[in-house]
């Protein structure tokens, strides 16, 4: 196939000092691409809640209860399966540990569910011990609806399709049940450092 002379796309050159932070097959971008599988939901905050189901009893938080939880600021690198990566993105959110700690369960997996119907599956051990947050702020501003606001899941060590936008809860499970993309070609786990993009990778 012909090479398009002079074409680079919108990719930024990778400096040596960050090269080690860019997983195989990825390139850096300066902007924050918006990817979406459907219309942007707009749930009013007084109707918003986050719920964890599948344990002995369902547990839920209203927006106020959620915002009253201890939160933290984190700076992380993110990697999208469509090959762009962004380093040093800053977020504010509630650690998933904070929510799962009040739920009595022995589930090994969860399915995150969202406004608009999106779902993604994760092992519980990949969202605990400081590995995941429910993020409500990006770069010091309330999270934009097109980037998943009011709250999105943030799981930076896996491909960003796992960082579900407009997240509304988890269903705890014993089995790993594939979500929206995992059931249609995308890898069940999604480790960018092992380039686990698709089934069988």
């Amino acid at each position: 196939m012909p090479i398009s002379r002079g074409f680079r796309g919108r990719r930024s050159p990778v400096d040596d000092d960050v090269a080690g932070r860019v997983p195989p097959g990825q390139h850096l971008v300066d902007d924050f691409p918006v990817l979406s599988a459907g219309p942007t939901p707009h749930t009013p905050l007084d109707e918003w809640s986050f719920e964890i189901r599948g344990a002995a009893e369902p547990v839920s938080w209203t927006w106020q209860e959620f915002r009253d939880l201890p939160s933290e600021s984190v700076t992380v690198d993110i990697h999208c399966v469509t090959k762009w990566s962004k380093i040093d993105t800053s977020w504010e959110g509630v650690s998933v540990d904070t929510l799962l700690d009040v739920v009595e369960h022995d589930a090994a997996y969860l399915l995150a569910f969202c406004d608009g119907g999106y779902t993604t599956n994760l092992p519980v051990e990949d969202v605990t011990d400081g590995k995941a947050w429910l993020a409500y702020s990006y770069e010091g501003e309330p999270l934009d609806p097109e980037h998943g606001g009011p709250v999105r899941l943030l799981v930076p060590h896996l491909y960003f399709w796992k960082s579900a936008k407009w997240v509304r809860g988890f269903v705890l499970r014993d089995e790993d049940e594939p979500g929206f993309w995992e059931s249609n070609g995308y890898h069940l786990y999604g480790d960018p450092w092992r380039e686990q993009r698709y089934w069988g990778d």
Partner: peptide, 17 residues
Amino acid sequence: YVRAPGIVARCPGCESV
């Protein structure tokens, strides 16, 4: 929707996938 990790086409009536 083509700007996604894949293509998603929804019903113009009810937005279901």
